[in-house]
Amino acid sequence: MVDLIAKSACAGLLPITIGSLTLTEETPDPVTSIAPFKGQSEAVSERLESALGLKFPAPNRSASKSGARIVWAGQGRALLMGAAAPDLAGLAALTDQSDANAIVTLKGEGAEDALARLVPVDLRAAHFKRGHTARTFLGHMSASITRTGVDSFEITVFRAMAGTLVHELTEAMESLHARRSHLGQ
């Protein structure tokens, strides 16, 4: 029988550490897009809550519980990560997205400043708190950005753009590191 070998989106590219910042790949599995049909949002949310303890998230929000996470992902859609979706037949469109994205975590002091080089959204802690998520751009790429901790963000882009994602973040990290080392900023 044939044996297919799996390769992650950022294989060979990560992890990297520059100064205080570390960039690592995340590989939650499975990842399912959940988009409730008309009038079914509450029913979907109830099913999710009884199965996983997670409600369908409000726009710009995410939630997590025992390894499973659900992240708002645009108009009437969320991504359930790290747990299989319950039966939502007739209630929502479920689409496998386990392989659709490159997902990375940027962590460390100055993560906000590095992202400020690339993301046109206010990510300061007072305004963008843990669990907040934004659909926006990172450089020229559509991206989903979620604050996962005091100094950590999860960033999702199309899988095929993994190389560009790492390149852009590396540039930002290098520049920030140089500013800190040489200018004391």
Binding site: S33, A35, F37, K38, Q75, G76, R77, A92, A93, T95, D96, Q97, S98, D99, A100, N101, F158, R159, A160
Partner: peptide, 22 residues
């Protein structure tokens, strides 16, 4: 997206790109 939101919001349809999934 335009057709579903701007012309026929009555349609009960969900669309999502799977270009990168496969």
């Amino acid at each position: 997206d335009w057709v579903l939101q701007g012309l026929r919001p009555d349609f009960d349809v969900q669309i999502v790109s799977v270009t990168e999934q496969w």
